[in-house]
Design a protein around this nucleic acid. Sequence first.
DNA 1: CACGTGGAAGCACGGCCGTGCTGTCACGGG
DNA 2: CCCGTGACAGCACGGCCGTGCTTCCACGTG
Lengths: 190, 190
Amino acid sequence: MPRFVDAAARRREIVEAVKRIVAADGLARVSLREVAGEAGLVVGSVRHYFETAEELRVYAFSAVAEAVAERVETQDDVVAQLCQLLPLDEERAVDLCVFTAFRLAARTDPALLPVADAAHARVASAIGGSVLDAMPGADREQLVAEAERLLATADGLALHALVHGRWLDADLCLAVVRAQAATIGPSPTL
Amino acid sequence: MPRFVDAAARRREIVEAVKRIVAADGLARVSLREVAGEAGLVVGSVRHYFETAEELRVYAFSAVAEAVAERVETQDDVVAQLCQLLPLDEERAVDLCVFTAFRLAARTDPALLPVADAAHARVASAIGGSVLDAMPGADREQLVAEAERLLATADGLALHALVHGRWLDADLCLAVVRAQAATIGPSPTL
DNA sequence: CACGTGGAAGCACGGCCGTGCTGTCACGGG
DNA sequence: CCCGTGACAGCACGGCCGTGCTTCCACGTG
C-alpha cells in the first residue's frame, strides 16, 4: 500500500473549514474552492474525500447536528439542556450558527431535510424526557406541546443572539431560559 | 415626458417575485436573472429599478420586514400579536419564510443588518407594550426579559414550523403560543 | 529494483453570476 | 414635425462555480 492517511481526521479538518466559512460568511460561501482554500488543500484533494459538493454539505451538517444533539442528550438538567442550544461560548456559537444555517437550508434542499428532521427528533426527545420528569401525570399531547414550548424558546433565543448579538448578551439569554424553565407544568388557566 | 409607469407598482411586483423564489428555493436562487424571469421581465428591466443585486435584496427585505412589523403593531392582544409571527396561513408563511431567510443572511451581510435590527426593534417594542399592560409594576429589565421570552418562543416556533412543517401543525402552534402567553408575569420562584 | 496503488493535484469545460455599456422604442412637449 | 427623454432590452466581459478527467508523486509489496 502507498502512504496512508487518517481519512476520518482529514474529513474532520474539512468539516472544521466548512464551519469556519459558514460562521464567518454564511452558507453561500461554502464552495469546493473556498473550503479547500480554508483547509489548506486544493479542490482535487477535497473531492477525494467528498465526490460532490452536496455530499460535503450533507456530511458537514450531519457532523454539526451530531455534536449539538450529543451535547443536549448528555445533560440531565432541563436548563443545562437548553443552554446547549444557546451561543453562550465560542464553540457553541459556531456550532449553532452552522446548525441554524443548514436547518433553514434544509427547508428547500431535500438532501439536508432528513438530517434536520433526525436532529430535531433527537433534541426534542431529550427535552421531552426532562419534561416528563417534571410533569409525571401529563398525557402525550401536553408533553409534546410543553417540550416544543421550551425548545422553541431556546431556538428563537439562539436565533436572536446570533443575528442581533449586540442587543442580547449571555446574561439575558440565561435569565430568559431560567424564567422559561420555571414555567414548566400544566397551564394555570386555559 | 415619455410613457409613464407606476414605478412603485413595478417594484412591488418585483418584490413579489423575490418572495416567491425565496419561499420555493431559498435565498441562494435570488439572482437578477431568476427574479427577472419570475417577474416576466428581462435583466435589464429589473436593473432599471434596482441598479445592483444588493439594492434589490435590501429593498425586498425592507418590504417584507415592514409588512411583518406592521401586522404585529396593529394587534392589541398579545396572542394575536404573536400569531402574526407564525406561519398560520399562506400569506404569513411566505412572509415569515422570506423574513427569516433574510434575517439569518443579515448576520453576515452588513447591508441587511440595519434592516433586521430595525424590524426586530419594532416587533420587540410592540410586544413589550403588551407585556407592560400585563405587568404594570415591572422594571425595565424584567420587561425586556419577558418580552424576549415571548418573542423568542414565537420565532422559534415559526422556525420549527417552516423547517419541520410536517411535525408541527397550526393547532400545536396555537396551543404553544396560548400556553406561553398564560405564563406572562413575574417569575414564580427565582 | 520495478510496479501498482492510493493520495494529491490540476486542467478544461460549460454554466450561472453581476454589471458596464449600448441599442431600440413610444411618447409628449417644443 | 421632430427630438429628447423615460422605459425597456440586450450584448459582452470577467469571475466563480461544480465536475469529469488526466497527471503526478510516494511508497510497501513482489
